[in-house]
């Protein structure tokens, strides 16, 4: 049985019944690094809180390690580790005091599971008598991870551990997660950063409380139906505007230094002819320095496509 299973979980807030989670179902496999990818307000934190037994869903059911999140919440609390998004530890306690406290609260001790956190803890150990409030962002995050791991949970929930963290620290954090995976801990992590999706075994793309897609990052990318071009020109702003008006374009949007142009695949034209057509269209619009190449879609491209399709469906439903 999978360690985490959600079945049609729905959650609303307040009197207006604002929909936060909309019939979400997915399952996480044993030992998997599972990513919940979506922007702020997509419902990630609500899902985490339901799974960690902090909140009750309006409807639907979910189990963690086979325990029901409503009935067996005590058992679940014994076997999970959780790092909330805004978790800031006790600022006025030292690194060591924080760790010791959480170890004891979870009925464990630092010595008992030291091997599990060793690789992470050695990085902050030199500062163990420093107050947590005086640590930098990346250090706090490492300490928080140690605190969530110290009782050797079998499922680890990390809610936006890398938000607001610089790219270097983010890379390091994901390396730590990779190492943890080897200990056979099931990890569910949420993030608004699309580029982190490829570091997960499987991901769920989520927006407005509903799941857009659940699969391996590779499968999601390979299911991208359109042709994708990366176009570059000096006048970036005009380039986007012109490509947005290109006949047959399903989307044109900024993507790093390029503009990504998505075109419906059709059998008629040869690739080279297509490129020529775009370039001559741009030249006709006064952009003569444009260069373009066909490019592989990323998770972000897929997300954008799914988002706009979702928006479209939402609009037509109304």
């Amino acid at each position: 049985m999978e360690p985490v299973i959600l079945h049609s979980i729905t959650k609303t807030y307040g009197k207006e019944k604002k929909l936060a989670v909309d019939k979400v179902s997915f399952a996480v496999k044993q030992g998997e690094l599972f990513g919940l990818i979506g922007p702020d307000g997509a419902g990630k934190t609500s899902i985490f809180r339901i799974l960690t037994t902090l909140m009750l869903a309006d409807s639907g059911s979910a189990t963690v390690e086979g325990f029901d999140v409503v009935k067996d919440f005590k058992e679940i609390r014994n076997c999970i580790g959780y790092m909330p998004g805004r978790f800031s530890l006790y600022q006025d306690l030292t690194v060591e005091e924080n760790l010791k406290f959480f170890a004891t609260v979870f009925g464990s001790s630092i010595r008992e599971n030291y091997s599990l956190i060793h690789d992470i803890y050695v990085q902050i150990e030199p500062f163990k008598s420093r107050r947590a409030g005086k640590l930098s962002g990346g250090m706090k995050q490492k300490l928080a991870l140690c605190c969530a791991l110290i009782h050797k949970p079998s499922v680890l929930f990390l809610d936006e551990p890398t938000t607001g963290v610089d790219p270097v620290s983010r890379k390091e954090f994901w390396q730590m997660l990779k190492q943890l995976k080897q200990q056979n801990i099931t990890i569910i992590v949420s993030t608004p950063y699309m580029d982190e999706a490829t570091l997960c075994d499987r991901i769920a793309l989520i927006q407005n409380g509903s799941i857009l897609s659940v699969d391996t990052p590779e499968a999601i990318v390979s299911s991208y139906p359109d042709l994708l071009y990366a176009v570059k020109a000096e006048n970036y702003y005009r380039l986007i505007t012109e490509l947005g008006r290109y006949p047959g374009a399903s989307a044109a949007y900024a993507f790093g230094e390029h503009v990504h142009l998505a075109l419906k695949r059709d059998k008629g034209h040869l690739q080279e002819a297509k490129k020529e057509k775009i370039l001559s269209y741009l030249a006709g619009a006064g952009i003569k320095d444009a260069t373009l190449k066909e490019t592989k879609p990323t998770i972000e491209d897929c997300f954008i496509r799914l988002l706009s399709r979702n928006e479209y469906e939402r609009e037509t439903r109304q």
Partner: peptide, 13 residues
């Protein structure tokens, strides 16, 4: 406010 209550509630304590 700091979110530590979430951790405490999730703990078996």
């Amino acid at each position: 406010e700091t979110g530590t209550m979430e951790i405490l509630l999730v703990s078996p304590f």
